[in-house]
Design a protein around this nucleic acid. Structure first.
Lengths: 244, 244
DNA sequence: GAGGATCCATGCGTGGATCCTG
DNA sequence: CAGGATCCACGCATGGATCCTC
């Protein structure tokens, strides 16, 4: 039933994966200052009318433009070099507009193990942040890509993340998932992650019995990513805003 | 990227599920004598040029035409009434041209349990067979649908199936899957079932260690389905061919 | 001719996130 | 305005079988 014509031969749908951190950063820097619509046209992608029904569109566009291994499971966006790419919606002052999704919360038995081996820690160990000026008043195709940068958690950031993660995972292992809500955690918290609130997955209850619960995800609070952005602003040049 | 127009409003893509065995049989009888192409046009489905690259097409066409719960998992085609539909390619003499796929072979730990609770037994407990005159020389769209009938295994058939199944499942539980091939089993046998021979799934080896093996499926031999068809021919009228 | 190899459609889970009330 | 709810893309597994060599 799908008789759509293929795109013209010789026009690639995807970019070849980058081989080094420097390469992926250079590519991302090339995108800075461009609009999402401009990048989309370069890659023959349609621009949606609104993000309401295309929430992941900007992130997926950047994945293509940068040569990420699209849609691959349980692996960083750029597998070969261990880098995770995250788009970050910001306002004109550079303040994050939303929390940042990290990964799914393991509700099954495979929840054990130390922080260092957790999927949260691994995903956040090396991140290419790509800010996008995403004020609601600006049509999606006209939104500007900001200056990207590579980041790893500072010692202090890592400690905060680890403490939040351990507190939350302890509750899950104790079967107290029913008591978890979005208020817990300073930097990292847990919120629902599903197509419908009625979606359920099996998980372990307080007495070790199997119960059903809403699928959840780990998210970084906007207050945390704000700190990430601001520490970055102080770095690049000697004429930092801190000196003014 | 899929901007295909929907079909005209008011024309359903699928038939409503039947509520009784009589109803699904009556619908199937309505299809008898029609060509696959004719049924396809009634349901706005395209007819493939050959079955080489559309092997499941006839079965999926019949599912739609009869109102099966298409593509649903781990459930009979007609969930509400516990009936499984099977298309059966036959030559002009009514002899089956192929073996009949039943279900996937469980290679993981969940292989235990008695015959009565096996997925093979459940799927075969009530089957709507729909013969299709499928000689290779006849173009797909012109192939004729034969007279369908409801069937349950006779005591003798059930015994044969159970013996084959127990022999094969014993081998799997003993970790001897590497020794299983298509030669084993009188009525029911095991053959590969994958997109590529290189596809692998995890399974239990002889010493209880995890090893990889090709995914497999249970199939009914054509000699078995021939018997099913011939016993059916003897039933409907008193002037059976057995009397001639 | 039969056993091993292969092909398409479709549901579902995961990864990409933002929406939207109280 | 933050926490709960929701939406799209796409890979992968499963269910539909027949192809194609020895």
């Amino acid at each position: 039933m799908s008789d759509q014509a293929d795109p013209p031969i010789g026009i690639p749908r995807k970019t070849v994966p980058p081989k080094t951190e420097e390469e992926v950063l250079a590519r991302a820097l090339d995108l800075a200052g461009q609009t999402l619509g401009s990048v989309a046209r370069s890659h023959f992608m349609r621009v949606p009318e609104s993000t309401t029904r295309s929430k992941g569109w900007a992130g997926q566009l950047l994945e293509r433009a940068l040569g990420a291994t699209a849609g691959s499971k349980a692996a960083p966006d750029f597998e070969q070099i261990g880098v995770e790419m995250k788009s970050l919606p910001v306002d004109r002052l550079g303040t994050p507009l939303e929390s940042t999704y990290v990964c799914t919360v393991p509700l099954d038995g495979a929840a054990g193990g130390p922080w260092e081996e957790s999927w949260v820690c691994k995903k956040l160990s090396r991140v290419l942040w790509v800010p996008i000026l995403s004020e609601r008043s600006v049509p999606i195709g006209e939104r500007l890509i900001g200056t990207p940068f590579l980041w790893s958690p500072s010692v202090a950031e890592n400690t905060t993340l680890q403490q939040d993660w351990e507190m939350l995972m302890d509750m899950i292992l104790q079967g107290e998932i029913g008591r978890i809500n979005g208020k817990l955690g300073d930097a990292l918290h847990i919120r629902p992650k599903a197509a419908k609130a009625s979606d359920k997955k099996w998980t372990l209850g307080q007495e070790g019995e199997w119960v059903q619960a809403n699928p959840r995800g780990f998210y970084l609070r906007a207050s945390f990513t704000r700190g990430v952005l601001h520490s970055q602003l102080a770095l690049p040049s000697s004429s930092s805003s801190l000196h003014q």
